[in-house]
Design a protein around this nucleic acid. Sequence first.
DNA 1: TCGTATACGATACGATCGTATACAGGCGCA
DNA 2: TGCGCCTGTATACGATCGTATCGTATACGA
Lengths: 209, 209
Amino acid sequence: MSKSRLTSEPKNPPRARRDGRQRLILAGRRLFAEKGYSATGVREIAARAGVSIGLIRTHFGSKAGLREEIERQVIAQIEELCSRVSVHLGAEALEHLVEDAVEWVERERDALLYLRSALMEKTPGSQVLLRQLLGIMRQFVEMNRERGFLQDDIDEEWASIFLLIDFLGPAVLEPFSEEEFGKSMYHREMVKRRSAFMNRVVTRGFLKS
Amino acid sequence: MSKSRLTSEPKNPPRARRDGRQRLILAGRRLFAEKGYSATGVREIAARAGVSIGLIRTHFGSKAGLREEIERQVIAQIEELCSRVSVHLGAEALEHLVEDAVEWVERERDALLYLRSALMEKTPGSQVLLRQLLGIMRQFVEMNRERGFLQDDIDEEWASIFLLIDFLGPAVLEPFSEEEFGKSMYHREMVKRRSAFMNRVVTRGFLKS
DNA sequence: TCGTATACGATACGATCGTATACAGGCGCA
DNA sequence: TGCGCCTGTATACGATCGTATCGTATACGA
């Protein structure tokens, strides 16, 4: 299904508009993220991509095929994030994880918002995506335990779920953030305050016992 | 729009099948929660409710009208939860909040799962729902500050957002929970472990500083 | 007992959905 | 030069969508 990429990328310069495929992927990803899969029509995707509807069938077979390709790419991006996390070790690992995640989020905002929508609609790939992310969190918890940074008597499974929830949280709230807080959840100031608060919480909490 | 309730509830016993309205609300709420608003057709709602499609128009004017009525009821339920929270004071306030929330979730599972879907699709009432929940969390944080249970130098706004995220988290993960963890996020054991972990985190964290 | 309002079902209508078909132009290769 | 392939457009088709219309039965007020 990626034959078109094989003929376009390694070979010579642009034919007359060979970018329809990628344009459809980007347009579809954004629209699925914004309005959901069911609420988005193929005509709207094609219009946003600036191509004809028939092209969806040409490249992906169907609307569902387009979604599968989109999810393949998002899954690949999460895998890349995952491999990046595993190189961080030591006391400041959490900060690096957060920094990496924030940097990834800034770079791949659309992928994250698609991920959000996929989790909400339970698409074919969403369970895979969730498992990947949970894997990252488990890896992080395990890493900290091995290095002795985990406090005693911690439920490691729930610690992983906790980290997952707090990674996804801002994405879940993002569509409401502008109206509720006056700025995006990924605005620099919000990220900074969140990072500070989360660092505090995971090491000391915020309530007296 | 609630004229039917005014004539049915205060007045005398059942006419011939006067329950179509409530059946539609329950069926719609469950289907919207399970598959999303756009992916659910009026015929499917009517079939699940065991009534004819025309009845949606009779009672709610349109599919969107049905959703509005569903959201009105969910909003009312959150308000009830909200008023319940405000009576809890003292050191064990968080536990009571969690207990109350858990009890509410068990009783109104469908309402919570509808709330989840509303947040994902950004329905007309979802911003209201989010603001309500955030209000509960702010109330809780403020209460703890007044009683001196808040640690020093806490970003109270982010503490509220944190609580909101960790309240919604299990609902967000619920559709994947069975496959990922073998049981519902609201299974008794999961709730117990989560409650224990969260209590630990908010008071002491889980990582060494 | 009659008139009216309400609760509900059956079916028809127009729009839009995703998909299928037919065809055009540019490129690589024999 | 001609053929085949790939990318792309335009348009048509059948299904399904939400909605509208019409008809019926039941219950209450006069």
